[in-house]
Amino acid sequence: MSNTLLIKDKQLKLDKNGYLQELAGWDKAVAEALANKEGLALGSEHWELIHLLRNFHQQSGLIPSTRVLVKLIAKEFGEEKGKSAYLMSLFPDAPLKKICKIAGLPRPINCV
């Protein structure tokens, strides 16, 4: 797996798990390229959650657990979306790891 992400004239370093090394280098094009590597095309529902997660991280300094992220989604966008099935449908398999990676955040360490 390549450890750099090339976007037009930008070259971004990735760690061994494919997460951005310099979090400041993130922008929408980077997110799309990272999502592409995961086989995902980002739609408005993905963006809604990505922005929510990035704002939460910026404000709190925390990376939420899946359970906390689902609660955060419920609080922000209502009970209908605040379900792990909804998160799973947008970011399949390992939703928390995937959304953190695409949102340009560090790899979540607690997987509880």
Partner: peptide, 12 residues
């Protein structure tokens, strides 16, 4: 680390 930033989120 500024842990005060995390305090308002503890409710979650």
């Amino acid at each position: 680390k500024n842990i005060s930033k995390a305090l308002p989120s503890l409710e979650l």
